[in-house]
Write a protein that binds this DNA or RNA. Structure first.
Lengths: 202, 202
DNA sequence: ATATTTAAACCGACTGCCCGGTATGTTAAA
DNA sequence: TTTAACATACCGGGCAGTCGGTTTAAATAT
């Protein structure tokens, strides 16, 4: 964590979350990390590699462990999900503690993903994989909730799970476009998930 | 439409929908439009201006006239919406008839919007305005459908309307990330809206 | 303990290329 | 004859990446 390379990846990940790949220059990367160009290229062979490792770091930092969420109640599951969203984001921003707080900058992980897709088309498989894993957990808890008697809906488990995910992404992108802070985004997401839950609960 | 400037804006809009602002170079713009640099700068004073006019063109081409959609039935309203999505996209691609068809390229309007926000922060107001207008129409038809007896839900009109919109954006961004073609995106959206409708109908 | 060797860590000037933009025209049409 | 429409060579600056070097520190030898 305190290694030079890790330091670079951390700063770089933040920049790539704020701006497009091309907008982030090596000069800026060098300046913001406080390194020299020579030192920089001692650790990374190209800008592309810095981006790739930043992308991997981003995934490591923000990947969820769904198995820690409630496995008995759908409501509890999505409440855990919301709490985890805050936790994960806070944890990421903690690295920049003294520099700024999460309200000051817009982090746009969709923009990062778009750049990644343009640079590495095979990255699409990673995205699909992540989606499938998340969907699997939603379907699982929905199935359980249905047999529990917690919910009752004519919709299939998959379609219900997809609905929770799509709502989340739809709100995510709208909040980013409107420059809404994390807490408010999570609140809005809770509102919508509560509404959906209200519709399908027994 | 057949004017030189319109031709440039058309080609440029396509490029800005495919790549980030910085990735699109003046050289490429000049080559793809078949013009010379001098001619190009005769019509536009800067790259930024080309982008701005492409953005405006994009809005003109893809702005919906909700007042043409059904005003009696929510179901008909969203079916009209889906049909209009196909119609608008087809109309846009018709400009490039002989060059390629819509399946071959990824059109990412979110990426365009992110670039626009970075270049012109005040563009956020335009986005919010567009969102508000769309929401207004959703709320209107939902209100009507409720008094019609078409639907019955404890959810507020606004929350229900937002849910339709967020679902649409969530599916949109997921289909873009997964490289899904327009028709399949619309099908998936219909699936989800049908599911939501199933939940709230009387 | 101290001297010597070795290699990793780091530095900043430099390179060549491509960027957006311009200057100076020529052609075509009103 | 005037002006809009187009063409081309060119420019300064910033880009990613390189290169020859120095410093630092750990490993090894004395």
């Amino acid at each position: 964590m305190s290694g030079t390379k890790e330091h670079i990846v951390l700063i770089a990940s933040r920049l790539f979350l704020q701006k497009s790949y091309k907008e982030v220059t090596m000069k800026e990367l060098v300046d913001k990390t406080g390194m020299s160009k020579g030192a920089f290229y001692h650790y990374f062979k190209s800008k592309e590699q810095v981006f790739l490792e930043s992308l991997e770091f981003f995934h490591e930092e923000l990947t969820r462990d769904f198995s820690k969420y409630s496995q008995n109640s759908l409501k509890k599951f999505y409440i855990d999900y919301l709490g985890d969203t805050i936790r994960l984001t806070r944890h990421y921003f903690k690295h920049f503690e003294n520099e700024f707080n999460e309200r000051d900058i817009t982090i746009n992980h969709f923009s990062l993903v778009f750049d990644a897709l343009r640079l590495f088309p095979e990255y699409r498989r990673k995205i699909e994989e992540v989606f499938k894993i998340e969907l699997k957990f939603w379907v699982q808890i929905i199935k359980t909730a249905r047999s529990n008697g917690e919910i009752k809906t004519p919709l299939s488990d998959v379609k219900t799970g997809e609905m929770f995910i799509y709502l989340s992404d739809g709100i995510g992108i709208n909040m980013i476009m409107q420059g809404v802070a994390l807490e408010d985004m999570v609140k809005q997401l809770k509102n919508q998930w509560d509404a959906l839950y209200e519709q399908i609960k027994t």
